[in-house]
Amino acid sequence: MLSKLEEISLIAKCVAADDRRAFGRLVEEYSPGLRRFVFNLTMGNASLTDDIAQETFIKAYGAIRSFKGASRFSTWLYAIACREYANALRRRSELPMEESLVYTTADSANDAHLAEMRHDIQVGLRALSPAERTLIVLFYLEDKPIKDIMRITNMPEGTIKSYLSRAKTKMAKALSDRNI
């Protein structure tokens, strides 16, 4: 993991010298987490995930001069990713997003349990609106504190908490209904 100093040094190289190798290093560092985040938002749509994640990094590079360093670079990236996800939803509003459940084959009891958990997550996430889904994934999967989520989503604290609470209830209901 990059230290804050290394991160700033790489960003400075990008800003001052248009250093693409430095930016490549930032992409390598942050792409696994960002792709996982987007992959969960898109309910396992791999091609859409790569589109959104790539677009996020390209937009980040274009706007890197506007990064003031008030938050971590990853927080700033997640904010761009959320906007790109919203744009993707808007673009696809005429054609509904493919939100088919991803079933995985289970080779052992352990795998079966994992597959069941994955399925539960997908069922739960499907019951949510895109905004709720974004908040749930940021809070429970990415472990982002509310302060960072406020920066990422540009929502006030109270709204985030009420969305999270509502989303949790919806997920619980969806998962309970599924098992009846």
Binding site: G24, V27, E28, S31, P32, R35, R36, V38, F39, N40, M43, G44, A46, T49, D50, A53, Q54, F57, I58, V102, L114, E116, M117, R118, D120, I121, Q122, I136, V137, Y140, L141, D143, K168, M171
Partner: peptide
């Protein structure tokens, strides 16, 4: 919920050319 996500969240398939593509 946190445990459920940490254990069973979907993992994006590996994309070795992702950085190059960007």
């Amino acid at each position: 919920l946190r445990n459920l996500f940490h254990t069973g969240a979907l993992q994006a398939p590996p994309s070795p050319w992702f950085t190059q593509n960007v």
